[in-house]
C-alpha cells in the first residue's frame, strides 16, 4: 500500500530524514513513533504528497506519489492538527462543504457525525468545540469520503481518555472495513494498544520495527522479577535458579505480598535504543 525507498529530506543544513525505507501492507494499522522533532509530520507530509523530498522513492497504492491523480487522492483521508476548520460554521456545515466538494449525499453528514459521537453537536459552531470534539470533527471530515488509506498525525495528542478511546474505536472500525491506517504518535501506550505494527523513528532513521508484542519479547533480555514484601520493602531478581530459591524462600516465610515479571515496554525499548524518552514530560 505504501512503499518508501531510501527517502531523504533536509531543511537547509538540517537532515530530518536519512534514507528511510519501509513498506506498509494493506489493511493494517501502522504506528510511527518518535520523540518530538523526529520527523514524523515531515514523513506524513511526504507520503501524502504535500512535501517534496530530496532523494528516494515513495509510492502509494502502487503509484509514484508525485504522479497521483485527483481520483487517487480521493482515496486518501488525512487528519493533521494544523488542518483547520471553518470556525464560524457549525459541525454539520463544516462537513457539508466537503460533502459538496466530494459530491457526497448530504444524508451522510448525520451518519458521519454520529460515528464520531458528535450527533448532538451538529449545530455547534466549530469555534465553540472542546479540544476532543474538535479532534473528532477533524477525524469525521478525514473519513467523510470513505478513504481507503488514512493518514493521522497525532490523532489523540492532548485529549482526555474518553475521547482517546472513542477515536481508537473509530480507527479500529476503519481497519475492519479494510482500510490501511498510518498514524504517528508519541504515546507508546496508544501504539501498543492500537497498532499492528510500529516503527520507531529517531534522528531520521527507523531504528526498530515490528509488532508491539514481538518487540517487547525481543528486548526482554534480562528477564526481571519484581517483588514487594508485606513490610512494604521491595526487591528485584533476575530470572535464574538462584532467584527461584530466594523467591521460594520468601513465599515459604509468608512475607511476600506481590510478584511481577517486568517486561520492557515500547518506551523502555526506545530509551534503550536511543537513550531518549518518547514523551518529554
Amino acid at each position: 500500500m505504501i512503499n518508501c525507498k531510501e527517502v531523504s529530506k533536509s531543511f537547509g543544513e538540517h537532515k530530518v530524514l536519512d534514507k528511510v525505507s519501509f513498506d506498509v501492507p494493506e489493511g493494517v494499522i501502522v504506528g510511527l513513533l518518535g520523540p518530538s522533532g523526529a520527523g514524523k509530520t515531515t514523513l506524513i507530509n511526504i507520503l501524502t504528497g504535500q512535501l517534496t523530498f530530496d532523494a528516494g522513492e515513495v509510492s502509494v497504492m502502487n503509484k509514484d506519489v508525485n504522479k497521483l491523480k485527483g481520483a487517487d487522492k480521493d482515496k486518501f483521508g488525512i487528519m493533521m492538527d494544523r488542518f483547520g476548520l471553518y470556525e464560524r460554521f457549525t459541525c454539520a456545515e463544516n462537513l457539508a462543504v466537503f460533502a459538496d466538494v466530494y459530491g457526497i449525499n448530504k444524508s451522510n453528514i448525520k451518519e458521519s457525525l454520529a460515528s464520531v459521537g458528535l450527533e448532538d453537536a451538529a449545530k455547534t459552531k466549530a469555534a465553540d468545540l472542546s479540544k476532543g470534539m474538535r479532534a473528532r470533527l477533524l477525524l469525521a471530515r478525514a473519513l467523510l469520503h470513505d478513504p481507503k488509506i488514512i493518514f493521522l498525525d497525532e490523532p489523540t495528542s492532548g485529549l482526555d481518555p474518553k475521547s482517546v478511546k472513542g477515536i481508537h474505536e473509530i480507527i479500529q472500525n476503519k481497519k475492519k472495513e479494510g482500510c490501511t491506517i498510518f498514524l504517528t504518535t508519541h504515546n507508546m501506550d496508544e501504539a501498543t494498544k492500537l497498532c499492528d505494527d510500529v516503527m520507531l523513528l529517531n534522528e531520521g532513521n527507523i531504528v526498530e520495527r515490528g509488532r508491539p508484542s514481538d518487540l517487547c519479547r525481543k528486548y526482554n533480555k534480562d528477564k526481571k522479577i519484581k517483588v514487594t514484601m508485606k513490610d512494604g520493602s521491595d526487591g528485584e531478581y533476575k530470572q535464574n535458579a538462584d532467584a527461584a530459591d530466594k523467591i521460594a524462600e520468601l513465599i515459604r516465610q509468608g512475607s511476600l505480598e506481590t510478584i511481577h515479571s517486568e517486561e520492557p515496554t515500547l518506551e523502555t525499548i526506545f530509551l534503550e535504543l536511543t537513550g531518549k524518552k518518547l514523551e518529554e514530560d
Binding site: 504535500q50 485527483g70 480521493d74 488525512i78 488542518f83 483547520g84 476548520l85 470556525e87 466538494v101
Partner: peptide, 13 residues
C-alpha cells in the same frame, strides 16, 4: 491562516 485552504486542495479543489 486557518489552513482550510490546504484541506480544500487535498480534496482536489
Amino acid at each position: 491562516e486557518k489552513n482550510t485552504l490546504r484541506v480544500l486542495m487535498h480534496a482536489n479543489v
